[in-house]
């Protein structure tokens, strides 16, 4: 009898906790969609400026999120150019070249890097600038390239892990086939293994891009500002969507700014959700293809 009661309680607990979590997500997304959905539109992006003139940068944008959106895109682009080649190469080495011992040691280093909080990564960028100023580059300052570099280090371990997992999950028959038809190791990696694992690798890269787009703590310490206009160069300050949301969350003055915050948050959520959906779908189709 008592056991029956405990069973019931656990069953109820399981339903209740699932209900709580689903409700939390639904409230979050529903509220964001209802408040932010109304704000979506050209006005949210460009404020009072003429859209065409704003896109080309001939007219500055006030009260619109276009500069922040452009800043985030620039950040993500530069960060991916830095992180993806190194991350994929390191994953390939760990999976296809490294001895078992090296796999464990280097793999642990990558895991450690993955565990570093993003604010510490930002702090690293900040100390790097102080260091450069004291030594070889007195004019160095926090900027787009610094922020993108730190974001790249932040997402690097994820890309490396995803590449490793995708390649290590491939059947050994593929490796034997490569060797059997007389391919060198490099040829076998680039012509057989990477193409076979491409969907998994791509999925990891897209997740990394999403992480770089949403992170706030890193850019907070490495050169983001509230108003800079469109990103003008690698060594300039920049705006970014997550920082815009942070500013509006901590100091919105009126209803209009709050609405802008909701619109901005919705845009960022749509961006990361779309990236995530791509990554999820790629990973699924990769696993389905090689599950046998």
């Amino acid at each position: 009898m008592r056991r029956r009661l405990a069973d019931r309680a656990l069953l109820a607990g399981s339903w209740v906790s699932t209900g709580i979590i689903l409700a939390a997500v639904l409230v979050l997304v529903g509220y964001l969609a209802s408040r932010g959905g109304g704000a979506l539109g050209l006005r949210l992006l460009f404020g009072d400026a003429d859209p065409l003139a704003a896109i080309t940068g001939r007219q500055p944008v006030f009260g619109g999120i276009w500069p922040a959106l452009a800043g985030t895109c620039a950040l993500v682009l530069v960060a991916s150019c830095l992180a993806i080649p190194v991350g994929v190469a390191s994953g390939v080495y760990l999976s296809e070249y490294a001895s078992h011992r090296l796999q464990i040691i280097l793999g642990f280093g990558v895991d450690l890097l993955a565990s570093i909080p993003s604010i510490v990564m930002g702090l690293f960028g900040f100390t790097l600038i102080i260091f450069l100023r004291r030594t070889i580059l007195p004019g160095a300052n926090t900027s787009l390239i610094l922020a993108a570099g730190c974001l790249a280090v932040l997402v690097l371990p994820g890309i490396s892990r995803a590449t490793y997992n995708s390649l290590a999950g491939l059947p050994d028959s593929l490796r034997l086939t490569g060797a059997g038809i007389g391919l060198t190791r490099w040829q076998s990696v680039t012509r057989v293994l990477i193409p076979a694992g491409s969907r998994g690798i791509l999925s990891g890269c897209i997740l990394g891009i999403g992480r770089a787009a949403e992170d706030t703590a890193v850019i907070l310490l490495t050169g983001v500002v509230a108003t800079s206009g469109l990103p003008r160069g690698l060594t300039e300050k920049f705006e970014a969507l997550p920082f815009r949301i942070y500013v509006l969350a901590s100091e919105h003055r009126d209803r209009a700014e709050l609405d802008e915050g909701f619109g901005c948050a919705l845009v960022l959520l749509l961006l990361t959700a779309a990236l995530f959906a791509c990554a999820f779908w790629l990973q699924r189709s990769f696993e389905r293809k090689w599950s046998r």
């Binding site: 080649p85 991350g87 280093g109």
Partner: peptide, 26 residues
């Protein structure tokens, strides 16, 4: 080619040491 892959792997694994060194130095 193997050497450059190793370099990438070393960079990913040792970045954490660099970060640690900077924080300790400061």
């Amino acid at each position: 080619l193997e050497g450059s892959l190793l370099l990438a792997a070393l960079a990913s694994a040792c970045a954490v040491l660099l970060i640690l060194a900077f924080l300790v130095y400061f």
